[in-house]
Design a protein around this nucleic acid. Structure first.
Lengths: 339, 339
DNA sequence: TAATTTTGTGTTACCGGTAACCGAAAGCGC
DNA sequence: GCGCTTTCGGTTACCGGTAACACAAAATTA
């Protein structure tokens, strides 16, 4: 592999001069610069960033720890993050936790040994605070994406789960629904808690009853078709009087399982029951907009997250934590109908 | 940041001994090992891989250059690749070219300066051979994903675009279609060429006419709704006699634009016209399987690609290039009907 | 028990850059 | 033409590991 020494020899200068040419630092005679640049081109030299980072203590690399980039919501975050990172001169290392605390832990180690300059993470649960503190100990800035966790003091970029839920439920109420069930994600994730809060408060504000059995929990991602089916069966058969006329699915994955289960059980959406959810269901939306959703600007989560992270990394003066809560867009489509 | 020297001092040994403990190399007294391990734990030491890679000339990092991870097909590849990489002890740096040669070029530089041990790439076009040769010059193994390019001698993992197309077209012919149009991706991408070949040969084998105006080209990714609409209008109005009764969209993105355009122009699928395409249209398929498709095992593209790449990186004896061509699965659904 | 091997650990140098320091040559003011 | 300031570029040391070598102490063999 070509090094700065090879260039130096070829151009008849010292390695330091080559370094200066590369970094545009110090004063270099034009003729010298040209000699060096020619040698660099001739030998196809590319600086070794490992060697660089050894002295600079910067790797120009960010860690991006998400649930699963194969999930469109997260792959959009990843795309936004990667774009912003490259614009700012950074590289991105990716990791998928699958909502698994152990995997998350392993990836934090990976990020530490890679000496990333900063980490963007959608934490699996409140327990993740321990990992984040480890990063902090090593002086690695962290920005949370999509979710907050208890005791975290730092920047985050999330969606407004509370407001989004309120609006979805209000929409259902406007359509005349009084019996609305919630199929939520795991309550150790902040978005699930916020969505439940929005759901409950909106019902209360409208003097609608909240039945215990209207609320169930399911995985945000690996929804087993059986799970959704059981929940739906339970909901629809429990008590004919209180049978829900609408379901609030906490995210797009859950919504898909719900639709599937309803279909298998012979219920039609929206004739028999309305369904709303968080996050866009793509790419259906482009040719057959079906779901009434609270769409989140996932791309922006990633973009803004990286911008803030890089500001921390480069120690721009940032007084205090920034808590960005991006409002979702409510799109009313065909999965909801008036009673 | 804690270094091996801090550990050495704390444990009262030489840095070399610490290194040996970490790497399980050489002979270490149990008591010494325990002392060192305690110090490592107490100080929260994590090895600096930049320093390591400086001596070892290995970064344990792979580059993954794709069109766009926000595209489900590629995000699945990315997921498969990342999983396999971690299993084999590697990290993954991601890059999105957006089918742009210049961006691709920049990312190759990024990978070179990061000194990745190997690169997985879905090349933007045949021109990419120049970049790949640059990588080869630096002794960095390359595995192609999804697409091949001219003059490339090395491993690749692609789908069988030819066979998949043949089967899709044969399915249409079995359904009685005689006038089948192709809306293809750009012909500088191998998959587009192979799909067109499959399309043409199947028509010929069945003594069906090939009309020049049946074939059009469009971007694989950033399909402008206007573009698809223009093509459809042209197809449907050109000559009532030869109006196609079926359209072969070269990938899922194109298929979505086609469906959208058809809808806007008042045509119903599959009553008025049948549509088939490559790649699954997710997540619709889970709750409303609509599209007749040639589904590709994208995850496997990534997994196998990484396995082969790592074998090259670690110089396992691999005699010659491996050309893996994975067959797609044909799923016949509701977007096609008999004439 | 002496000779030989194995075990356990330290020393030195180097990987490829760059910060810090230094000094010769050139430019400048008077 | 003398002293002072720039300009330009080289030397040295260090970043955090590890390979290669060295060597004393312990274990094994003859």
């Amino acid at each position: 592999m070509v090094t700065i020494y090879d260039i130096a020899k070829k151009a008849n200068v010292s390695p330091m001069t080559v370094s200066r040419v590369i970094n545009n630092s110090g004063n270099i005679k034009i003729t010298t610069r040209e000699k060096v640049e020619k040698a660099i081109k001739d030998l196809g030299y590319v600086p070794n960033s490992a060697a660089r980072s050894l002295t600079s203590n910067k790797t120009k690399t960010l860690g991006l720890i998400l649930t699963d980039i194969a999930n469109p919501f997260f792959s959009k975050i990843a795309r936004g993050a990667e774009d912003a990172a490259v614009e700012l001169g950074y590289r991105v290392l990716i990791a998928n936790t699958d909502e698994d605390f152990e995997k998350e832990n392993t990836y934090i180690d990976m990020m530490l040994s890679a000496r990333v300059d900063g980490v963007l993470i959608a934490p699996t649960s409140d327990k993740t605070i321990a990992q984040i503190n480890r990063l902090k100990q090593h002086n690695i800035p962290v920005v949370l994406l999509d979710r907050t966790i208890k005791d975290f003091a730092g920047d985050y970029v999330i969606g407004d789960s509370y407001e989004g839920s309120r609006k979805l439920i209000e929409h259902l109420i406007n359509y005349g629904h009084k019996n609305i069930a919630l199929i939520n994600g795991p309550s150790n994730v902040s978005t699930a808690r916020d969505r439940q809060r929005g759901y409950l408060e909106t019902l209360k504000l409208n003097d609608l009853p909240v039945h215990e059995h209207y609320i169930s929990e399911i995985d945000f991602k690996n929804v087993q078709s059986g799970d959704a089916k059981n929940i739906i069966q339970h909901l629809m058969n429990h008590n004919k009087e209180k049978r829900p006329t609408a379901i609030f699915a906490a995210n797009n994955f859950i919504a898909i399982s719900v639709i599937q289960a309803l279909k298998e059980l012979g219920f039609h959406v929206p004739q028999d029951i309305s369904v709303v959810c968080f996050d866009e269901v793509e790419p259906v939306v482009y040719f057959d907009p079906f779901f009434t959703v609270a769409a989140q600007p996932a791309n922006q989560f990633g973009r803004i997250g990286v911008q803030y992270l890089v500001e921390r990394v480069e120690e721009k003066k940032v007084e205090k934590e920034r808590r960005i809560i991006l409002p979702p867009d409510i799109h009313i489509r065909k999965s909801t109908s008036k009673i």
